[in-house]
């Protein structure tokens, strides 16, 4: 027990002292995950919108496909991407394996179905009259889509936050296609795994605290958004 307390104390000291190595890992994590979520969000939300408002064959099958992807293990995505990016793979010439770009691509694949499924649910909850009112008042299609997004903004923000929470806390993809290279592809989760395997718990716990704080922040934000949605309903 004393050992745990001591290690936690050391972890807090590392965090508060602004340890350069530790904070560079945190920054890299956020940088990779933010890029992934920012690139994916517009495409995923448009797919969610098309699945909701479109009337084309196979719509339900596509939706079921995205829903089934919600529970795919991250190591499976990591393995798939590894096979694609390895020297002998179809995209080997791009030399992306063990780079931050590969981590971003992997995290994009991971959060895409989350954003589509939750975005779909948010858009489905919107009133059909939003679309019809916007169209009858002369709005072009693109503006009407933006209007629908704005009217369900709390639900969409919740989808984005959930997607971000999923990718910042994943370890399988980052480990397999990032390679856990210090100062280049080492992020919070791969660093925790490494430090723990080395028996150096202080840095692992410090990074764990950052992840926990982030999880708490995201949950608090989601609750706030839920409250705002109910207030404006």
């Amino acid at each position: 027990m004393n050992g745990l307390l001591l290690t936690t104390q050391q972890a807090l000291q590392l965090l508060l002292s602004g340890d350069a190595e530790l904070w560079s890992i945190v920054m890299l994590s956020f940088s990779v995950s933010l890029k992934a979520i920012l690139i994916t969000t517009p495409f995923a939300l448009l797919v969610a919108f098309a699945l909701n408002h479109g009337n084309f064959p196979g719509r339900r099958i596509i939706l079921a496909f995205f829903n089934s992807l919600l529970s795919v293990p991250t190591v499976v995505i990591g393995l798939f991407l590894y096979v694609m990016l390895t020297r002998q793979g179809p995209f080997g010439d791009l030399r992306l394996l063990f780079t931050q770009s590969a981590m971003v691509i992997g995290q994009m694949i991971l959060c895409f179905p989350v954003l589509v499924a939750l975005g779909y649910a948010a858009i489905q909850a919107s009133d059909r009259r939003v679309w019809e009112t916007s169209r009858t008042l002369g709005a072009p299609t693109w503006f009407t889509i933006l209007t629908v997004f704005y009217e369900v903004r709390f639900g969409l923000l919740a989808a984005v936050l959930t997607g971000f929470g999923r990718i910042i806390s994943e370890v399988g993809i980052s480990m397999m296609v990032g390679g856990n290279i210090m100062g280049y592809t080492r992020n919070i989760t791969t660093a925790i795994a490494l430090e723990t395997s080395k028996g150096e718990f202080a840095q692992g716990i410090a990074l764990g605290i950052v992840l926990l704080a982030l999880a708490f922040l995201l949950t608090a934000l989601l609750s706030y958004l839920q409250g705002s949605k109910e207030l404006t309903a």
């Binding site: 009112t133 009858t136 209007t147 704005y150």
Partner: peptide, 28 residues
């Protein structure tokens, strides 16, 4: 289409104040 406007039984008013709702269609 731009010459014809349809109003629902219960109108949908967008998030925002009365002024912004009235101005909605003018931007087009």
């Amino acid at each position: 289409r731009k010459e014809i406007i349809y109003l629902h039984q219960q109108p949908f008013l967008f998030s925002g104040n009365v002024e912004s709702n009235v101005a909605y269609g003018l931007r087009f």
